[in-house]
Amino acid sequence: MSIAVPSLDTETVSPRRRLSSWALLRHDRIALIALIFLVSVALAAIFADQLVQSGLLIDPLKQNLLGRNKPPMFESKLGLHLLGTDQLGRDLLARLIFGARISLGVGVITIILSSIIGVTLGLIAGYRGGRVDDFIMRLVDIQMGFPQMLLALIIIYAAGPSVTNLILVLALTRWMAIARVTRATTLSLSQTLFVEAARSLGATHLRIVLFHILPNLTSTLLILVSLEFGRVMLSEAGLSFLGMGIQPPDASWGLMLAQGRSYIASAWWLVTFPGLAIALTTLSTNLLAGWARSVNDPVYRKRMAARITRH
């Protein structure tokens, strides 16, 4: 690779400082598209009620038995069905947007919960070491040995399928990877000079962990969490698909897929669009995770910096 030095005066300033993550994002077209997609899905989900009130979106609960299973671009008395209608004549696009509330909501809350569990246990294990560390890591190993999917199914079935139970079970089965990574990073960070310095200045353990170690974990965790978000979305969709997750009349993308399954031969859109929604959302978070990883890679950053400043 030829080293493109843009001009002499930038040589003294490191490119890392000159280029914010945002500048790098603007030049990575795929990551930018992924971000725009996620933000627009989230916005549509948040303002779904307003969209219905303003007449831009058809009411997702309005049934029209004369217009059942109609293909995309079908026009009924309710309005234009951009993505067609479902088995009860409800607008598919509206149901997808309202389904996004639950699918994304479950994903976000689950990830927050499992991160809290994983990061807390990982920090304690990595910082304290010794018996505490042994105990927590054994716990991780033991839970990794459980047949996760079967156990999740049984517990949800016993506790009764509901959004709360779904979130709890998913959060309790997905914290281990986060705990492992947090512990490993904390372990190496707690032997660094700056932690040593903070300690000799008399900082409390809590202060060291919260202000010196945790901030250095954020980039690693951000990558892991966006990958995990994709996995949680897929698990939720899978459980809802089996009838063990979201229950009607609520709509989640996985449930919509399950409902559309019976009409697979006659109404392809019922299966195609909810699946596409799940796939594109997961794809976007995975792409952003990949982008976050490369941004944290100094070699990549330098190369991008050189490319951007050359323009």
Binding site: A237, G238, G254, L257, V271, P274, G275, I278, A279, T282
Partner: peptide, 9 residues
């Protein structure tokens, strides 16, 4: 990124 069961369908 692709949900397994969607791909199956």
């Amino acid at each position: 990124s692709v949900p397994t069961f969607w791909l199956a369908l």
